[in-house]
Write a protein that binds this DNA or RNA. Structure first.
Lengths: 226, 226
DNA sequence: ACGACTTCGTGCACTCGTTCACAAGCGCGT
DNA sequence: ACGCGCTTGTGAACGAGTGCACGAAGTCGT
């Protein structure tokens, strides 16, 4: 299949592409021009890294490495960036300028990896006008205009759980079709809208499980049975 | 297998338990005493929710629902909390009181879901002493003493990428065996230490992929070929 | 007391992803 | 020019997780 380009890229692979990209950027900066699947696997580390997985992932992109040599770092950066749609520097609208919202607005990692915070919103009139990370907080009413002006955007919800669904509805109504939700609640969205969620407490609870399990295995004194 | 209790709980199930727990807490607060697998699946929403999946997940805990009725909300909360090791209110040590660290320290969601921020640390002497979220920032040197005093802890890394590995080493040396890493870098740890990572930019990039794919599918004008 | 209805628990088939193993391809040294 | 060693790309085996379908078990109404 010479022109097989990318047919269907599995979700599991998509989830790893950003990790590869991160490591590749680091390599590029230190001047490395070529990397093997084994080296790359080591760099992304942990569970995400086995050489075979790397090769299969990259093969889904139609990317060709050079046998006996490895992959060209610069070309791989371009290919993955293109696949992820990072040619365009996506505008991000952030709703909810509380504790977490402040942190996100000030987080440099977005800018350096293909995103641009286009505007901040908050439902609380007292917060509107406040300047955070160089941007003035706007009232929710301006959301549709901003999204239209940007020609689409990715929405980030950093509000309390109670407000999240309303905010999500407003984002969708404004034309946003990709939402990243930090509020600890499930969101209902129409077909065609994509939601990802990040729940900080959930991650801790998963860690807690493993910690607990380890403790149970090491010191099986006795649990009080029901 | 009457006494089959919990043999091995699959990772995929563990990752969903906190979501169930969240919905169950909400149900308990509004006074609901009983819930069916179908209802619970609907509540957790999205990809995580199919009734069969819920039942299978819960069966791994040895939990018995009542046929014809559903699950007892209160009992299920207890069972899942126990499985996740939330009987103990885990102490969390947070390293890196920058932008994100501030947000995490002030985030109420931890306290309400089984965790307690025990101490804040920062390598920058200028930050030491500052009070954030009711806690004074301590110098890294005090880390081992604090962890020992708490009898173990979960470590959270909210530093820049460059500092993350050193901080991680310090945590491990202090006896921490579960680490949540917000820095955009892979961490190397010895066996027996568990690391989970949350990378905010990665989530956005995954969204970007889907957005890009959608755009490509809808308007296949022509991409500029290499 | 009994039947109809609801909902759980679970074996089975299937899908998706990972790992393995190896042939094909490329560059380099001689 | 040629062979040797390295690394990719990929088919095939394997394993984990999901969805389905149905038997088991309990409740409620009559």
């Amino acid at each position: 299949m010479t022109s097989a380009r990318r047919r269907h890229v599995p979700d599991a692979t998509v989830a790893r592409l950003p990790l590869y990209l991160r490591s590749l950027h680091a390599l590029a900066e230190e001047g490395t021009t070529t990397v093997s699947s084994e080296e790359l696997a080591r760099l992304v580390g942990g569970g995400a890294g086995s050489p075979a997985k790397v090769r299969k992932d990259l093969s889904h992109l139609g990317t060709y490495g050079t046998r006996g040599v490895g992959y060209d770092v610069a070309q791989l950066v371009d290919t993955i960036s293109a696949e992820l749609g990072l040619a365009r520097r996506w505008p991000v609208v952030l709703v909810g300028v509380g504790n977490l919202g402040h942190a996100l607005a000030g987080y440099g990692g977005f800018a350096s990896r293909g995103f641009r915070i286009a505007a901040l919103f908050d439902a609380d009139p007292a917060r509107v006008g406040e300047v955070v990370g160089g941007l003035a907080v706007r009232p929710m009413g301006e959301l549709p205009a901003v999204v239209a002006e940007q020609g689409g955007a990715i929405g980030v919800i950093a509000t309390p759980a109670e407000a999240a669904q309303d905010v999500c509805d407003a984002l969708v109504a404004a034309g946003v079709r990709s939402v990243l939700n930090f509020a600890p609640t499930a969101l209902e969205v129409p077909d065609g809208v994509d939601v990802r969620k990040v729940d900080l407490a959930v991650e801790l609870q998963i860690l807690s499980f493993h910690e607990h399990r380890r403790a149970r295995a090491e010191q099986p004194r006795q649990e009080v049975p029901a």
